[in-house]
């Protein structure tokens, strides 16, 4: 039977949470399409393949010293080898830094169509239909797969993690992995920074709508101080150098879940929302009434943050 194949993701021999989410996704998609779920694990030995077999019934292991560390080129070759050796209908890859680094290469290498950044699926008339966010999260797209084979990248958090407990089979797949033109050198840690915003009960976060550093300090930092909370930011604010990376909330920053999260001048793109959607109360202030941040806000204020925040400050006394 055709397979829905998860490509396991790992760094330093440690499986990512996204891999476990994809095991869950593969089971659901396979069941809806009359296929079977499976996983491919690329590593220097079969230890990780045995680990993945706890989560999914069938595992294909490509073992090669060149696969110790993730590499876009060796992964593309390994996907090609598994698809050539087995009956694979669909390939699921996490929509993560490493996943998007090779997913399109793999799709082209196996002659598959690709839909990226998906968060939901359904099967309509036998065809897989995937839901993804576009236009900065304002428009949802449902794209149906028309190709015989497909590659899908799946947003982190779209599916729950599969629990361990199974005892799947592990089969080796032979592959010749050529020496890549891209070579891994080392992993470097970024400075952690001195502040830990993840423990704060109240967070006031500013985005691009705060316009400039002085204004960000004026409204965001001051409101945070007034509320006895921490100030934070979306990535564009950190990119522009208005505040430290340690205060960045989102996929490439911190994940926070305070009692109160005030998002001012933040549009609410998925990259930011991923880091704060667990907050108990979310207040969104944005002058764009269509900003996706209002879709997750407990309270929304459509308006100019430079008018609204001073009014809130005055109200607080």
């Amino acid at each position: 039977m055709a397979r829905i194949l998860v490509v396991a993701e790992h760094r330093s021999g440690k499986l990512s949470d996204a891999t476990l989410e994809l095991c869950k996704a593969a089971k659901a998609i396979a069941s809806a399409m009359g296929a079977t779920p499976a996983a491919a694990v690329f590593y220097k030995d079969d230890s990780l393949a045995n680990e993945v077999a706890k989560y999914i019934p069938e595992v294909f292991a490509v073992v090669d010293a060149k696969l110790e560390v993730y590499n876009a080129e060796t992964y593309t070759e390994a996907v090609k080898a598994v698809v050539a050796a087995q009956d694979v209908k669909g390939v699921l890859i996490p929509h993560t830094y490493d996943g998007v680094d090779y997913a399109a290469k793999a799709a082209l290498a196996i002659g598959a169509g690709i839909v990226s950044n998906c968060n939901k699926f359904e099967v309509q008339g036998g065809a897989l239909v995937l839901t993804r966010n576009t236009y900065n999260g304002k428009i949802q797209e449902q794209r149906s797969i028309k190709t015989d084979k497909f590659v899908v990248t799946i947003e982190k958090g779209a599916f729950d993690k599969e629990a361990a407990g199974g005892a799947g089979s592990v089969a080796a797949v032979a592959a010749t992995i050529p020496a890549p033109r891209r070579a891994f050198k080392e992993i470097v840690a970024m400075m952690a920074g001195s502040v830990d915003i993840s423990q704060a009960k109240i967070i006031v976060a500013g985005g691009r709508g705060t316009k400039e550093k002085d204004k960000y300090n004026d409204v965001i930092v001051n409101l945070a101080k007034k509320l006895g909370g921490e100030y934070a930011a979306s990535r564009p604010v950190v990119d522009a150098g208005w505040t430290d990376a340690a205060r960045q909330v989102g996929q490439s920053g911190k994940t926070v879940a305070p009692v109160l999260y005030i998002a001012a001048g933040i549009s609410g793109a998925i990259q930011h929302v991923a880091g704060m959607k667990g907050s108990q109360c979310i207040v969104a202030i944005n002058k764009d009434p269509e900003a996706p941040v209002f879709n997750i806000a407990t309270y929304g204020i459509v308006g100019d943050l430079f008018e609204v925040i001073p009014a809130v400050m005055a109200e607080l006394g």
Binding site: K138, E141, Q142, A284, N295, A297, T298, Y299, V308
Partner: peptide, 19 residues
């Protein structure tokens, strides 16, 4: 592809009035 506007699915409360 089929598209739809995400803003149709709001659950929170939008506050009205002057600032």
């Amino acid at each position: 592809s089929r598209f739809r506007e995400v803003s149709a699915r709001r659950e929170g409360r939008i506050l009205k009035g002057s600032p």
